[in-house]
Simulated scan of single mutants.
Amino acid sequence: MKKQIFIALGLLLLFSCEDVVSVELPTDEPRLVIDGLLRVDKSQEFIDVEIKVTETSDFFQENPVTQVENASIVYGRPTGGGLFDSISSSSLVEREPSSGVYIPDPNASSEQRIRTAAAEPGIAFILQLEHKERRYLARTEYSASVPFDNVRQGTETLFDEDDTEVVVTFTDNPDQNDFYVFDFDFGEFQALDDQFFQGQQFQFSYFYSKNLQVGQSITISILGANLDFFNYMDLLVEQTEDNGGVFETPITTVRGNVFDVTDLDNINIFDNVGQPDVFALGYFAVVQEFSQTITIE
Rank of each mutant, 00 (worst) to 15 (best):
F204V: 04
G36E: 01
R255V: 05
Q4C: 10
M233R: 04
L236K: 03
I126R: 11
S91Y: 11
K132H: 09
V53T: 08
S221H: 06
S89L: 09
V168L: 08
L137N: 09
E62C: 13
M1Q: 10
L92C: 04
S99M: 09
D41S: 13
N272P: 04
T79P: 03
E289K: 04
N63Y: 05
D28C: 06
V65A: 06
T249Y: 12
Y102F: 11
F229R: 03
F6C: 07
F204K: 10
L137A: 10
A71Q: 00
N63W: 08
R77V: 14
F229S: 07
A118V: 03
E62D: 14
R134H: 07
N268M: 11
V254Y: 04
T262G: 07
S57T: 12
G10Y: 05
F182I: 02
E96L: 14
E188I: 06
R135V: 09
D163W: 08
Q239R: 09
F159A: 15
G187C: 10
T252G: 09
E297I: 12
D85L: 12
R113I: 03
P97N: 07
L264M: 11
I218G: 02
I220T: 02
F230D: 03
K42V: 06
Q176A: 10
E111Q: 13
D260P: 03
V168K: 00
Q216G: 06
V167A: 03
D48C: 06
V20T: 13
V49I: 09
V20S: 14
V53K: 00
A191F: 01
P64L: 07
V254T: 10
L227Q: 15
E120L: 12
D162Q: 12
I73K: 00
G244T: 02
N173W: 00
P30F: 03
N226W: 01
Y136C: 01
I114A: 01
V20F: 12
F189Y: 11
E18S: 15
M1G: 15
Q203H: 05
L223D: 02
I296D: 01
E141S: 14
R255F: 13
S291Q: 07
T155G: 14
T262V: 08
P250N: 09
L192S: 00
V237N: 07
G82I: 02
D35E: 14
Y232I: 02
P147R: 05
